[in-house]
Amino acid sequence: MKLRTGLAALLAAATLVAAPASAQDYPERPVEFIVPWSPGGGSDTLMRLISGNIADHLGTEMPIINMPGVGGTVGLREASRRAADGYTVSQVHEGLLVATEAGITDLSWDDFEPIALMTASPQYLVVHPTEDYADFAEFLAYAKANPGAITMGVTLGGLPHLHAAMIEQAYGLQFQYVGYEGTGERIRALVGGNLDAAMGDIASSKQFVDNGDLQFLAVGTPERVQEVPDVPTFVELGSDLNLLVTRGIVMPKGAPQQARDKMEAALEALSQDENYIEQTNNAGSSVMFRGQEDYRIYLTKLDGTVKSLAEVLAP
């Protein structure tokens, strides 16, 4: 009896010691990073920079799994179904909020645990060079004279669709929309001459602009971007458009607080890593860190903004 009692006490003590030790040791294996977009686009490029630099701060690798489809919602659906144990993360941006409001998915941002906002990327109106227009003023004149003639590459029901519709609304234009899953896919279609214009970013488009295959007509920032100082802002061109993509890291709902805190701390340390900052800037984006609570507040406010603009996407 004494032996059994002693063993039971020993096992109980071992359990008490083991539980916090296991949590304290998180992460004990690699954390899978589901990127819900195809390779080559802005999200994929920027998330690979996080994946490639996080190990020194997190203590383990964070390998990327690309799961594109339906405006980024296929990968996010998979991420939402993963075990809430801290060993799966994914990436969201404004596109999820737009897809939710447009009825593309029943997922919403608060089906996840926001961990950290990491980057902000200005969006550009990108065109395939043509004799019909050489700058935005000529593009505007051509588009007004030929309503519906310009084919515009977007993610239908996603953020690029919203941004393009905002341009339509601001200047009284009408585009013919063509849907693509990710930025990389539509920019390749634009390079191939299958589109007239698209919403893009530096990460996906600048190499093609530099070699003359594409042209930036305007950027959706309040001031000109240092990497492309010759590209005018929409503000300069007569509207108050602010077109940005902010990207953040989330975990499945119910992930342990300790895992969330450790991931947040690792991402905050990464956001101060000079090598990572330089790589992110070179990719045409800026590091913009917000921790769990600030990111949740940001998403709440952003959700209100998207709801107020949802009618722009109405057919």
Rank of each mutant, 00 (worst) to 15 (best):
P20Q: 12
E168M: 03
L58S: 03
P68A: 06
H128S: 08
L117N: 12
N66E: 11
D230S: 14
A255Q: 07
L97D: 06
T300F: 11
E223A: 05
D210G: 04
R77P: 00
D196V: 06
D110W: 08
I115A: 05
L3H: 11
H161L: 01
R260G: 15
S121W: 01
A23K: 10
V231A: 03
K2R: 14
N282I: 00
L267E: 04
F112A: 03
H161V: 00
W37G: 11
N242R: 15
I150A: 03
R296A: 14
T280D: 04
L16H: 05
K301L: 14
M47Y: 09
G158Q: 02
T15I: 14
T280M: 12
I104Q: 08
T130A: 03
I202H: 06
A259V: 05
L313F: 10
E227I: 13
A145M: 06
L125Y: 04
G41H: 01
P315M: 10
Q257E: 15
G40S: 07
T221P: 00
S90A: 14
F289L: 08
A189T: 06
Q176P: 00
R290V: 00
L76N: 08
R260Y: 04
L76M: 13
F175R: 01
Q272N: 14
A218K: 08
E185W: 02
F175A: 03
R48T: 09
T45R: 06
P20K: 11
F208S: 03
A21T: 11
N211A: 03
K206N: 14
V245D: 09
Q24E: 15
V17H: 10
D230K: 11
L244H: 08
A310N: 12
P232T: 08
R48P: 00
F139H: 03
T221A: 13
G40P: 05
I34N: 02
P68C: 07
D294Q: 15
G72T: 06
G179M: 02
M288P: 02
L140H: 13
R296D: 07
V98R: 09
D303N: 15
S22E: 12
H57T: 04
L117Q: 14
A18I: 09
G157F: 07
V98I: 13
V228S: 07
T221N: 09
A120R: 15
A18V: 11
L107Q: 10
E138R: 09
S308Q: 13
G200D: 03
D240R: 12
G148P: 04
M263Q: 06
V219E: 06
D110E: 12
A9S: 10
T246G: 13
S285T: 10
N275T: 15
T233G: 00
A283K: 06
K253A: 15
Y171P: 00
G148V: 02
S204N: 05
T305D: 12
P36W: 07
T60S: 15
L117C: 06
A259S: 14
D85A: 01
E278Y: 13
Q123K: 13
A8Y: 10
A14S: 12
F234T: 01
V127T: 11
E268I: 00
A203M: 03
P252R: 01
G200K: 03
S205L: 05
K253M: 10
